[in-house]
């Protein structure tokens, strides 16, 4: 019944989807009304991208591929936004350098 918009992106961040990136991804996901899920494989298992606990528990590593899918009115922009965040390395360059 779900009409998914899907995409995938390679995680370049040197620590992978750890604490800070997870919080950013979750926060961004929460700004969309759509159901948004992520997975480390195109077959799933899919987890709720709005659940900080589940996203952090995924422990997605550097250079692994993150699969994204969303369903709902703003699904397309949600997928684009999340993929963009990962592609931009979670906007962390500045913060990262500052905090060492």
């Amino acid at each position: 019944m779900n009409d998914w918009k899907s995409s995938s992106v390679v995680i370049r961040h040197e620590v992978g989807l750890h604490a800070r990136p997870s919080v950013k991804l979750t926060k961004l996901a929460k700004t969309f009304a759509s159901t948004i899920q992520i997975s480390g494989s195109p077959e799933g298992p899919w987890i709720d991208a709005k659940s900080i606990v589940k996203v952090m528990a995924m422990k997605a590593k550097q250079d692994s591929t993150l699969y994204l899918r969303a369903s709902g009115g703003d699904a397309a922009s949600a997928v684009d936004a999340l993929r963009g965040l990962v592609e931009r390395d979670f906007d962390e360059d500045a913060a990262h350098a500052a905090s060492g």
């Binding site: 604490a19 919080v23 979750t26 926060k27 929460k30 700004t31 709005k50 659940s51 900080i52 606990v53 952090m56």
Partner: peptide, 24 residues
């Protein structure tokens, strides 16, 4: 604290914030 705050940031209810923290 980090998990609860992340959940709170999205506008979740108090019960959802607590549940998120306690999932750990």
């Amino acid at each position: 604290a980090v998990m609860a705050a992340t959940e709170a940031w999205g506008g979740a209810s108090l019960e959802d914030v607590r549940r998120t923290a306690e999932e750990l």
